[in-house]
Design a protein around this nucleic acid. Structure first.
Length: 271
DNA sequence: CATACGTCCTGCCAGC
DNA sequence: TGCTGGCAGGACGTAT
């Protein structure tokens, strides 16, 4: 899916366009996107509600209404599109929202791994509290990263992707951050020294910030709310570059499988 | 509790 | 050309 930079790009784009708008229509095309929530109740709760703010927590888009939170997780292929009069209908609509100014907000999802859920602010706060720390928050320090990692026997690659410790990092940015930190993805999380944890801390923050600056990575599916791809794919150093030359040493980038997911790294540069 | 793995779903692409 | 298998930005449930 969209990882933190892609979700952040979407949220920043809609955060100044949606507040003040009222939902006047809800069309649930694929009820499975709501889990077991009845589509009729979902629509009824949202119709007439005014968007007050849009924010991000981990890889979730949080649309804030008075006394209600619509939380959207994009899964692998989800898109949140803002459509005007002339815009074509999405090819894989999941849920369509009509706004009081005539625009439409469309949740589009080819694989339908995404989810839309409604919570009271209190229940959402409880769920959000169970997620790990935001890597771009000041509380995310080299010491905290080292401490959190020091008790885990899983590989550092898998550890980075676990949303219970540090949020927002997925399959692309975990490989990218480990390359930048020159750490072998096969190492266990607990094996990192304080100085390696510090390098990884810096690498995570830098790669996420740069990716946000370039509006995210589009390999195939990711689009911003206007339907445009992100610009960071060309700046990836290892992800999806198996067999190509490492930008640092020139040796070929390797692809391995960890936890059922592809990992890309340089055997020479990453120890 | 922590860890490992299968599952949800559709589309695309390489290889035969 | 047409088929098949493998693979794809995530996260949850279950088994051990």
């Amino acid at each position: 899916m969209p990882e933190l930079p892609e979700v952040e790009t979407i949220v920043r784009d809609v955060a100044h366009r949606l507040p003040g708008r009222v939902i006047v229509g809800v069309d649930v095309v694929h009820p499975d996107l709501l889990d077991d929530h009845p589509p009729v109740a979902f629509a009824a709760a949202l119709i007439g509600a005014t968007v007050r703010a849009v924010s991000r927590r981990a890889k979730n888009i949080v649309v804030e209404f008075d006394g209600l939170r619509l939380v959207i997780n994009l899964g692998m292929t989800g898109r949140l599109l803002v459509l005007g009069d002339g815009d074509a209908a999405p090819s894989h609509p999941g849920v369509r929202f009509t706004l009081d100014d005539g625009r439409r907000l469309a949740y589009h999802d080819v694989r339908r791994f995404g989810r839309l859920a409604l919570y009271t602010p209190e229940v959402w706060a409880d769920r959000a509290a169970k997620l790990g720390i935001e890597p771009l928050d000041p509380g995310f320090t080299p010491g905290l990263l080292h401490e959190l990692a020091s008790s885990s026997r899983v590989t550092i690659k898998s550890w980075l992707m676990d949303q219970r410790r540090v949020v927002g990092i997925g399959n692309i940015y975990s490989s990218e951050a480990l390359f930048r930190a020159r750490i072998d993805p096969r190492r266990t999380a607990k094996s990192l020294t304080p100085s390696e944890a510090s390098r990884l801390h810096t690498a995570v923050i830098e790669v996420l910030r740069e990716a946000i600056e370039f509006r995210g990575t589009t390999l195939l599916d990711y689009r911003d709310p206007d339907g445009n791809p992100g610009g960071f794919a060309g700046r990836l150093l290892v992800y999806d570059r198996a067999g190509r030359a490492c930008v640092r040493c020139g040796r070929p980038i390797h692809r391995i499988v960890q936890g059922g997911r592809s990992t890309y790294f340089c055997r020479r540069c990453q120890r």
